[in-house]
Amino acid sequence: MNEIGGAPLFFLEFGDIVIYFTPFTITLFLLALVFTVFVLVSRPERQIDIAFGGDAYYAKEISLSELRFRRFMSIACGLACMGAMVTGDVFDFTLFVSLVGICNVGIVAAVKSRHVQNAAYQYGLVALAGTVPLFAAAAMVAATTGTLSMLELAKDTIQVPLAARALLVLGVMGEGMAPFYAAKAEMFRAPGAPYVIMCSLSSLLIFLRVAEVILLL
């Protein structure tokens, strides 16, 4: 079961921290990279909205300062995602995932709408709470096995406690906005694609990666 994401194609070693590319991780990495490039080069959409009390409609504009901040947070989110996709270290993975959570809050909270900010605040609280099981999982793995390297943990000789795996999944559920926070439609109805797309993209990517990590451990 060590090659669940396909045969490893490339290893990049930084001391005992190893970044590795398999067909699975490279697919996720490339997707994160492509959408980060979209964020870098594209202008945001102008959301069409109706004017209540008549049949008129108007296009919402995004101010330059808001655009700059949201673009910065989206790029940071993309970079964190790319890191989470290819890292071979459990602690690094949890760090990148928590960074994704912070960036997601930033992307949405910059929108000057009371409803959107309320939704971002509530999601922020969940993301904050999600870091506890996330880092607890990494601590538990280190304490019980003596290593945080996924390649080492994938060996049959090392047994990772079920509780550590469950906590890791719980932490990712807290940090990821989609699908569990997708019901908060205010998040995704906020104007300004492609920035908002980074929220759902990053959430799905970290879910996919944690599925691989759990099967690997």
Partner: peptide, 21 residues
């Protein structure tokens, strides 16, 4: 790997989201 197919299926959601937004 079947996991890659699973990933692509899930990422199709982002494509639909991208189309819409």
């Amino acid at each position: 790997s079947l996991l890659v197919i699973f990933a692509i299926y899930m990422l199709h959601k982002i494509v639909e989201h991208g189309f819409g937004l």
